[in-house]
Design a protein around this nucleic acid. Sequence first.
DNA 1: GCGGCAATGTCTTGAACCTGACAAAAAGGT
DNA 2: ACCTTTTTGTCAGGTTCAAGACATTGCCGC
Lengths: 226, 226
Amino acid sequence: MTSTASLWYFESVNLYNVLCPHKTKELDKKHEFRQFKKDQFIYFPNDEADHIYMVAEGRVKIGHYLDDGKEVVSSILTKGEIFGELALAGEDKRRDFAQVMDNNTSICPLNIEALKALMKDDKELSFRLLKLVGLRLMRLERKLELLVFKDARTRIVEFLKDSASWKGKKVGYETMIPTKLTHKDIAALTGTSRQTVTTILNELKEQNLIYFDRRKILIRDLANLQ
Amino acid sequence: MTSTASLWYFESVNLYNVLCPHKTKELDKKHEFRQFKKDQFIYFPNDEADHIYMVAEGRVKIGHYLDDGKEVVSSILTKGEIFGELALAGEDKRRDFAQVMDNNTSICPLNIEALKALMKDDKELSFRLLKLVGLRLMRLERKLELLVFKDARTRIVEFLKDSASWKGKKVGYETMIPTKLTHKDIAALTGTSRQTVTTILNELKEQNLIYFDRRKILIRDLANLQ
DNA sequence: GCGGCAATGTCTTGAACCTGACAAAAAGGT
DNA sequence: ACCTTTTTGTCAGGTTCAAGACATTGCCGC
């Protein structure tokens, strides 16, 4: 039972790590942060895909709607994470939406053309961007496997483990995950129903494997959670 | 009920379209085709990821094994299609396997380092490779959505439609898909069980929407299949 | 043409989990 | 502090499909 510890619910590539340090200064001039309020959309499906974005503050939900109106959430991004990077890879119109989840969310947009211009000067940048998209692809493959071939409990447990190693703070054996995600959010991320998330989380609490309230999830022993 | 006609079960990017036409000649010197027999592996998980490959003849199955030994098939590739391109995007060890499905399968390997060297000279090549990986990402997103949010019948029908538009030959209203895929193969590709595939295909045959035998699948009216 | 093996067809059973319904609790605004 | 809305908890009912078992059919090598 070897499980590779890779993350997929949360994204982890910082835009500044992708862009050359010495180029960053140059780009900083263009860094105009846009402010959003809760529930505002950054882009809709079919919008022109001409920017990639980094979250400077707050949370952003990426997803799209099925034919029947049901919302599918691909990921929920927080500070330092980037999105919309498919615009780099030839996507002309958005296929998904990006919606702000908190008030006072601050987003840094970066023009694709500007980035492409940088790529011409900077060969290394091309590799980094290729890696960025490749990393996203690998994560998606893991997500696919979990969502399709594992049962609801495993999906939720894996979600907790991913959250823990990515957002958690370790205190002794315990890992504290501060989160404002509702059970509905977790359901959307794990491809389960709201009720199932509630039930399974309470089962885990019952077994004393985790504790949670509306602000945090506490994992008793990350290594033994499964 | 608008369904975007994008393909995901089968891959569609020809390596020669990615590589500059004038570079192709240069690369041709290095084009040494490797021959494989049925069931041989091209690479295993944890192998060094130092090549990308193109199928020149025959079929190749890409997949991996779950902890419980179950085989997951990501895709089945035929002539002209490429695989292993995650090596370009920073994958150092293979996470999946590539297995040959037919005798007399011919594969053209291309060294990653050679390709990276080409990228330095050729800025456009970087964009093309970025697009290549981006396209794969978009397809995978569609696949994820279908597998997670649609029922077995829809998944199988979508599979048929994809196969038809990608591999099918149109004859009047009818579309003929020559295929050697077994119901087990289709089950693995659609994330269903072998029995379910058999049953649903027979239901579709019953409703006169398709006909099939062990060599082909015939779709009566592609536009009306759903 | 024959034997063996893989693929297909068809049932039955049961588990997983979605859905809808409703109550209780918490959060948030004014 | 009060009212409204959101979130959480719990249950019953029903659907979907995977899995196992077994018969039948078709393919392939000899």
